[in-house]
Write a protein that binds this DNA or RNA. Structure first.
Lengths: 149, 149
DNA sequence: CTGCTACCTAAACTTAAGTTGAGGTCAAGC
DNA sequence: GCTTGACCTCAACTTAAGTTTAGGTAGCAG
């Protein structure tokens, strides 16, 4: 088995192809400080190839619901900003799973509340905890109301 | 048990208090066609009180992830735009639960992919389905790579 | 009459995550 | 020697879901 050596540096176009992220978005990430590049003699960006991994992690983080600002903080928290190790990824991944878990729980709760609400047919203007999370005034004085038209 | 009659018409301030939605947002919803009002002699908005229910439904729909544009379509699909019946709510609620279910499934899949990825410690630049959803080029020619620094 | 409060309109501003456009450089191929 | 393609910068534009601001009205209390 021969070991094939990949090029050390890649252009923004190649980075775009390899990650599925548009060139303009990559420029944008760079302005935001999420990725960094060097320039060649023609002033073209040159990325060390492991930036592919960073961009990929950014995509995953976005899919789990983080903002680019959050992600920047995560990346800044890494021991080595440019080379993400296996240990880094384990730590990030576990944290992100926690975040996903929270999101899933929230949506599940909402769904269950909906089931209850549909099941009981309440739609009460004053009492339904799904429909009236903020209502304090309506709760007193006027009594519950059924939506039986 | 006395039946207490609620006022037929409420002001925008009251609607705001009862729903937890800011006055400016209610104005905005009205511009978007999500709710409708009549005006009194002072040109103040007057809402029939069942608009509370519509605004509440808007909140729930937003929490399940619909955009206001989506929600407008949902509301326009109702037999009676101004008075949401129990049957309407059942139909909407079931559809929205489906949407929630889809979202939950997606997030769960992402979380499982993360587990696999962390578990196998791959982080392969070329093969990880979590990290490389778009990569076609990298898949050929260069072979897998481990992130063992 | 004065002030207060709730309301009105229209337009500009906000944030996130980019995209689009205009105008310019550079190296390669024909 | 010209054209093409990939790249560069900077500024303006986009969408969603509102918020903020400025300036104006209507009715009630004292």
């Amino acid at each position: 088995m021969r070991k094939i050596i990949m090029p050390e540096w890649i252009s923004v176009g190649v980075l775009s192809e390899r990650t599925g992220v548009s060139v303009s978005a990559l420029h944008f990430y760079e302005r935001k400080g999420l990725i960094k590049s060097q320039r060649n003699t023609s002033n073209h960006r040159q990325y060390p190839k492991h930036v592919i991994r960073i961009v990929s992690l950014i995509q995953v983080a976005q899919r789990t619901g983080f903002s680019l600002e959050d992600i920047l903080l995560e990346l800044e928290g890494l021991p080595n900003r440019t080379r993400v190790t296996l240990e880094d990824w384990e730590a990030l991944g576990l944290r992100w799973q926690g975040e996903l878990e929270r999101k899933i729980t929230q949506l599940t709760e909402l769904k269950n509340m909906m089931s209850d609400c549909i099941g009981c047919g309440c739609l009460s203007l004053e009492r339904c905890r799904l429909l009236n999370p903020y209502d304090e005034l309506g709760a007193k004085g006027t009594g519950p109301q059924r939506m039986t038209e």
